[in-house]
Simulated scan of single mutants.
Amino acid sequence: MDPVRNPYSPGAGRPPAALVGRDDAIAAWRVALERSALGRTDQPFVLYGLRGVGKTVLLSEFGRGAQSREWIVAKIEAGAGKSLRELLGESLYPVLSDLARPSAGKRLLKALKTALSFKASYDTSGTWTFGLDLTSSAGGGADTGMLDTDVKKLVRDLSEGAHEEGVGLAILVDEAQDLEPAELATLCVVAHVAAQERWPVLFSFAGLPSLPRILTEAKSYAERFTYLPIGPISNDVVGEALTIPAEQEDASWNDDAVALVVEASGSYPYFLQQFGQTTWTVADGPRITLPDARLGVAQGTAQLDNGFFRVRWDRATNAEQKYLRAMAEDGDEGSSSGTVAARLQRKPTSLGPTRAGLIAKGLVYAPEHGIVAFTVPGMAAFIGRQVEV
């Protein structure tokens, strides 16, 4: 079929043509936005799950929901080699620039001045001005060097400035597990204070399945946050991720073809998009048949092996790959560190640096003490397809 009209789009954070199976999370966020407009606060949302399940897509959908109400939205991705200060400041600048105007109210002008001081806290050579003379405005003071103090001042003044505009502030953090412990603790503190003081601000964090544990270790009251596990799409709607985009392009799927792709994908959104894309490419159409799906899954698996999985596998050293092979014997369910060590005929303590290196590279995570698991579904099967040299 026409590759130009192919409606499937595998890729990190790329929105699918049909976002299915996430209605409950989107509805909960919408309610929180509406409650904020009434002066009622909600706990931060925490989206957690393996890579490829659509956390970034859902977080972006949260952002679009806030932007549609003209909220101030800061969306950042941790682990990009920048501090929380830099990430927050640079993500806020474009939207604040759009709001800056001589007729702005006192609270918004105060927020702009505070944002300038926050910029100065990590970049003394910065040239932000917003094109306004803020000399006589209140604000500033977000450059003490104390992270808790500065971020709290920034969020308070921005949320109050947003409230003056009749909107709110949303702070969305992707890959939150990659923040420094002090940075994550700061966000927990600020979110906690914001809820107590009824600031019109909403937080949402997204990350690996270990994120809930990391958050509660950072601050015990993080256990009260709203935790939303993001996993495979539920069976009752998963097929719609394939059929709805096709219908939008005047094409359709046979039921057995849908069933094959769903089974091969494990109902994981990224794999559904990949297999949908390759199946569309090989099909003559306008109806996608079971033979099309079989060929599409085969080609899609090859593409995943050469890209999605390969880039992760190649990041591992020889020693780390041996560790991953030992884990793969347990499939994707997770492995005991002791069991892995026994398979490698090593003492568990001697493998500590290898395990730590794999966690640092984002290839595995620790769902609980003494357990390690792959961060992406299907990794064990991929490793099984690799010839050991």
Rank of each mutant, 00 (worst) to 15 (best):
Q248M: 13
L242D: 08
W253I: 02
P16Q: 11
D98Q: 15
L38I: 03
W253C: 01
L304V: 00
A241W: 14
L59H: 07
S136F: 09
G131M: 04
Y221N: 15
G81N: 12
T339R: 13
I214M: 10
D236F: 06
G207I: 06
Q196V: 04
L304P: 01
C188Y: 00
D255H: 13
V173H: 00
A27H: 10
E249K: 05
Q273G: 03
Q321M: 13
R40N: 06
G378Q: 12
L351Q: 13
S36K: 12
L134Y: 08
R315K: 14
F203P: 00
R30I: 01
P286M: 06
A360V: 02
V53G: 12
L50R: 13
S97V: 08
G296E: 10
G276S: 03
C188N: 03
S265F: 10
V389L: 07
L172C: 06
R198H: 07
G285F: 00
A162W: 04
L228F: 10
G307A: 05
F382W: 11
P286D: 07
E249W: 00
S9F: 08
L99E: 12
D24N: 11
D98A: 15
L363A: 13
Q67N: 05
R287T: 14
D292C: 02
A206F: 10
P229C: 14
V201P: 00
E90K: 07
A319L: 15
L50V: 10
G13M: 11
I171F: 02
G141T: 03
L242V: 05
E165S: 05
P181C: 11
P212N: 06
Y270E: 09
G63W: 09
S91P: 08
Q299F: 07
R40P: 01
K152S: 04
G338A: 12
A319N: 15
T243H: 03
W128I: 04
W313G: 10
A37E: 14
L295I: 11
E86F: 06
G300T: 07
A182C: 02
E164W: 11
K152F: 01
S117E: 02
L242P: 07
A264V: 11
A138Q: 13
E240I: 01
A32D: 04
D42L: 00
D42M: 00
